[in-house]
Design a protein around this nucleic acid. Sequence first.
DNA 1: TGAATTTCGTTGGTGTACTGACGATACAGC
DNA 2: GCTGTATCGTCAGTACACCAACGAAATTCA
Lengths: 154, 154
Amino acid sequence: MAAVDLSTHPGHLARRLQQAHYLLWNTMVSEEITSPQFAVLNALVAEPGLDQRTVGERVGLDRSTVAEVVSRLGRRDLIDKVRDPEDGRRSLLRPTDDGMRAHRRLTVRTARMNQVFLAPLSAGEQSVFLDLIQRVADAAEGLRNPVEPLASPR
Amino acid sequence: MAAVDLSTHPGHLARRLQQAHYLLWNTMVSEEITSPQFAVLNALVAEPGLDQRTVGERVGLDRSTVAEVVSRLGRRDLIDKVRDPEDGRRSLLRPTDDGMRAHRRLTVRTARMNQVFLAPLSAGEQSVFLDLIQRVADAAEGLRNPVEPLASPR
DNA sequence: TGAATTTCGTTGGTGTACTGACGATACAGC
DNA sequence: GCTGTATCGTCAGTACACCAACGAAATTCA
């Protein structure tokens, strides 16, 4: 009887929250384009010509995962991918016209979905909610890449 | 330039939050037993003898996922699995002695990790945070299983 | 009692998401 | 110039997480 109440565990709640979002996205936004795919597409609409590593930084995905998402977006002709002529290691990505259209369409639906998703909270609670999540996520992410103790004597 | 600011999208933040948690779990709790595995184990410590479907309900996992998690826990001899003699469809699950020990050990570490995870928030903010996540997740989950509009005229 | 229906677990398919290792390319210092 | 190092993308492996479809077992009800 040493069991724990998971409803006080932020990690467990985070997983449930993400699943709930997945559900809602699937029914209200798109069944073909997933939320991470939209995030990548969105990053490329904002800054066409990014390489994969930088895209990953922007949306919070590691290199392997970006590679897979990019391959799916490419298979649907939503983005183009070319080797950087100035640096043979990089692949440069940009949305196709189809990709731009898809992004515009999904932007509208995503906004609607966010409203439904946050509907159980008052307007004030909503902004608190976003702020708190962001601070926790940022802090934990920071633990991974510890800030270089500047001017460490080499 | 129609790109969107993802930091206002709860779904995107939920994903980042979960990844941050995954990271922290891996470094502070266990590299072998994952958070969903702990959740299942915890449910069985609380109520030994549950069948897979009910476990899934308790921790928020669908039947396929429970099957995989259960198979991994079984492979490590942390839980036992037997056919229900009274209902041949069910598999009854219970923790082994090893499973009980592992659960005890992880419970301590999990508590420590939760503290670190929530450290960027004040005590007051922490409880608000947990409450808000839970309400949003519960509401979205409710959308999936709409309450039967009782006595719908067939 | 016997047939239609429901329920449980499994399987196959898709899509994140991570780590670790690897080849190719670029760059740094000598 | 040449060698060691760092970086980028890929690949293999593991682990969620969902849906749809299926067989076996149980239940409903005609």
